[in-house]
């Protein structure tokens, strides 16, 4: 139980810190959210390519996989796995293969909900 609680604290801390760094960049510079996403994705891909982000994932679980850095990490790791098991074509498609479920659900479900939902004016 205690170890479980400690794990959640770690998850909260790592997830929170990553988001706070992004927020700090957002406030202090004029970089737009979309660019910050791309920047973090790139960081994730680089860290994944060198197999470094794995250590953070082991330590903080979902705190490291859910932020967009984790997405970049999966893309890079997928490509590496693809290259080892499937050669050149594995290297090309491995990244998408590893993240395909998430991307497919995003697209498919968005398609579905847009059929019955309409956008509403923001209240504030």
């Amino acid at each position: 139980m205690v170890s479980n609680l400690l794990m959640y604290l770690k998850v909260f801390f790592v997830g929170g810190v990553i988001c706070s760094i992004a927020e700090l960049i957002l406030i202090k510079t004029k970089i737009t959210p979309a660019r910050i996403l791309v920047l973090f994705l790139m960081i994730g891909a680089v860290l994944g390519g060198f197999n470094l982000w794995n250590y953070v994932v082991e330590w903080a679980g979902a705190g490291a996989t859910l932020p967009i850095i984790g997405f970049g990490n999966s893309l890079a790791k997928g490509a590496i796995e693809g290259a080892t098991s499937g050669g050149f074509f594995g290297a090309l498609g491995g990244g998408l293969m590893a993240t395909s479920a998430g991307i497919s659900v995003s697209i498919g479900l968005s398609y579905l909900v847009c059929l019955f939902s309409s956008s509403k004016t923001k209240k504030f």
């Binding site: 891909a45 997405f71 893309l75 290259a83 050149f88 290297a91």
Partner: peptide, 17 residues
């Protein structure tokens, strides 16, 4: 995000290969 993600992952894969 998707375009960059796929591009980086291909780059990583090719370099690794």
């Amino acid at each position: 995000v998707l375009v960059n993600g796929v591009a980086y992952s291909m780059l990583v894969g090719i370099i690794y290969f």
